[in-house]
Design a protein around this nucleic acid. Structure first.
Length: 112
DNA sequence: ATGGTGACGTCGG
DNA sequence: GCCGACGCCACCA
């Protein structure tokens, strides 16, 4: 029942995350806004938590609106998220994506 | 039922 | 620019 609703919600979120280009990042709020969830970015975070270890979803490309790696804790190893980003050429310093503004990928703009 | 918590964000001060 | 309040909504004790 509600599980199906959640499943739909998860699918929507994951689908967008999968569209984030390698070497770019997006935010919880941007995803929520694109899905018409107004400003319940928390739900996006909740969805991401549900897929934390799942394959095929580049969860490391989702950061908060300041470009900070607030979800690093949920990657098993706290360093994992940063490593994944750096492996894509993204520079991370003090848990913050450098040049964040330039790397930001907004579904509402770049997606048709 | 209720209050606290959280991968968040906006607004005031 | 930092801090607190508030809005958000699912989850958990």
């Amino acid at each position: 029942m509600t599980m199906e609703k959640h499943a739909d919600f998860f699918r929507d979120v994951y689908q967008i995350v999968k569209l984030v280009p390698k070497g770019r990042v997006t935010t919880y709020g941007a995803i929520g806004e694109y899905l018409g969830l107004r400003s319940s970015a928390r739900m996006v975070g909740w969805a991401m938590h549900a897929c934390a270890t799942q394959e095929g979803v580049p969860a490391h490309r989702v950061v908060n609106r300041n470009g900070m790696l607030t979800g690093k804790i949920h990657f098993g190893n706290p360093m994992r998220m940063q490593e994944l980003l750096e492996a894509e050429g993204i520079e991370v310093k003090e848990d913050k994506v450098q040049n964040f503004k330039h790397l930001l990928w907004l579904p509402s703009k770049e997606l048709l």
